[in-house]
């Protein structure tokens, strides 16, 4: 059962910290967003392996948009 990492707010993708296949612990930073001129680290809600990354740096994202999936 995959768990989604979702954007907590409207913003722009700055960096992808974990790529597909990498294992993550809970609270590890997966994607860094930029919103209101500040960096917002978005963390993994659970531990596991990154199964998919849906966004690329520079891309604008809506609040609640799925950024990555962890299994």
């Amino acid at each position: 059962m995959a768990t989604s990492v979702v954007a907590p707010m409207l913003g722009k993708v700055l960096k992808i910290e974990k790529n597909v296949g990498e294992s993550v612990e809970e609270d590890d930073v997966v994607v860094v967003l930029e919103a209101m001129k500040m960096e917002i680290p978005v963390v993994a809600p659970v531990g596991g392996v990154v199964k998919a990354v849906m966004v690329a740096p520079g891309q604008a994202v809506e609040a609640e948009e799925t950024l990555a999936e962890i299994e």
């Binding site: 907590p8 707010m9 609270d27 919103a35 917002i40 809600p45 609040a63």
Partner: peptide
């Protein structure tokens, strides 16, 4: 976020 990494307060604070 210092106290809870899963907490994103920016928009509410805005």
């Amino acid at each position: 976020q210092k106290y809870n990494k899963k907490s994103y307060l920016l928009m509410h604070a805005m």
